[in-house]
Design a binder for these strands. Structure first.
Lengths: 207, 207
DNA sequence: GTCTATATTGTGATAGAC
DNA sequence: GTCTATCACAATATAGAC
């Protein structure tokens, strides 16, 4: 029970950051939200930067677990689940993604850490594509695979922000399944007919 | 000569916004940059919001001209040029794109205007794809074309920001040709062999 | 048109009592 | 651990002299 207030600060911060943007949320608003005094907040965290950094630690732990894709055989269903979990994590910490350049400018020490995440996303995409190729599910040259993975990472990183642009009023009304579908669309042209058909049927739900 | 100072304010603002992020630039810094007093700045613009709005007017004019793609036959070379000009405009006003959600939250009156731009980007993509289909250059179902255009608009909107993540130190060192190439990669799987070959050869320069 | 001076408010952060 | 009170400073914006 010792860290109860500390935890409440972090959770409230995350929620406020996500809905209003990190730079538009003050420490006073965070304290207000959970009915404590600003002084109390600063007893638990010596600066706003410390709150952001600790939330980033959470994010890194969570997405790090996901990106540790093993080098084994991966099914299309596995990939579907993987992408969905990724988008869930991104949505959970969307304050980072929605103003990426701004956040990374204000908290420079996060720059290398985020760049490492991007690199790991790229590697994970590559492991999945390579596994598909080995199974004969996917046909693409090395060049095509590189470009495809690059595009997948871009989409993973920014699809949610892009989608939010159409729902700026109620930002929580975003269906993450659409993001997964959008990534699958990128892969589709290179898929074996069988798998492409399955995708095509699913598209009914998302277009 | 009447509007010299007013213009200098706008140009300096644009440059500072682009390199440091709009929310990280104060009116004092803008005034400092061109060696005028803050009071003078506020003689020309009654608020910072007015500066941002006028820069947005510029942006809208510039990109509006580009997005007025006529319904005529379009060659792959035309598309290449079109995409390059689009990315140039986006780069010129990248302060908007790099923290889109933040900017649109702080200046709510820009939300519908930007959403209209997105819509027009989508329509322009569609006109190009349809022209390609008519010419037999591109083969794709209606569903595939919709998904492709969606993906193209996402890439147009966020490719530059994504690329910047790797060059956070010197943000001007971004080759826009890579962005054009990245969009072409999206279209590639649906292209006729002839055109896809040309693309493949170009990929040497960009990978 | 431009400047200096200043009002006003907001924001991150600290000191010291309870 | 928590609160009240407050500091220090930066940001937008205005007033009035030149």
């Amino acid at each position: 029970m010792k860290r109860k207030t500390r935890d409440r600060i972090l959770h409230a911060s995350l929620e406020l950051f996500n809905s209003r943007g990190e730079s538009n949320v003050t420490t006073l608003q965070i304290a207000d939200e959970i009915d404590i005094s600003p002084g109390n907040l600063y007893y638990h965290f010596k600066s706003k930067s410390d709150i952001v950094t600790e939330l980033y630690d959470w994010f890194e732990d969570q997405i790090g677990d996901l990106l540790a894709v093993p080098e084994v055989e991966i099914s299309v269903d596995d990939q579907w689940l993987f992408l969905h979990l990724l988008f869930e994590t991104i949505a959970h910490f969307r304050f980072l993604y929605q103003d990426l350049v701004n956040v990374l400018s204000r908290y420079e020490h996060l720059q290398p850490r985020f760049q490492r995440i991007i690199k790991r996303k790229y590697d994970a995409s590559h492991r999945i594509c390579d596994s598909f190729r080995k199974q004969g599910i996917l046909t693409a040259s090395n060049q095509e695979t590189d470009a495809l993975c690059h595009q997948i990472v871009l989409t993973l990183t920014y699809w949610l922000s892009f989608e939010t642009l159409s729902h700026l009023n109620d930002r929580d009304a975003v269906d993450l399944g659409r993001g997964v579908y959008q990534v699958m669309v990128l892969v589709a042209p290179y898929l074996r007919d069988e798998e492409r058909m399955v995708l095509e049927r699913m598209s009914q739900d998302y277009l």
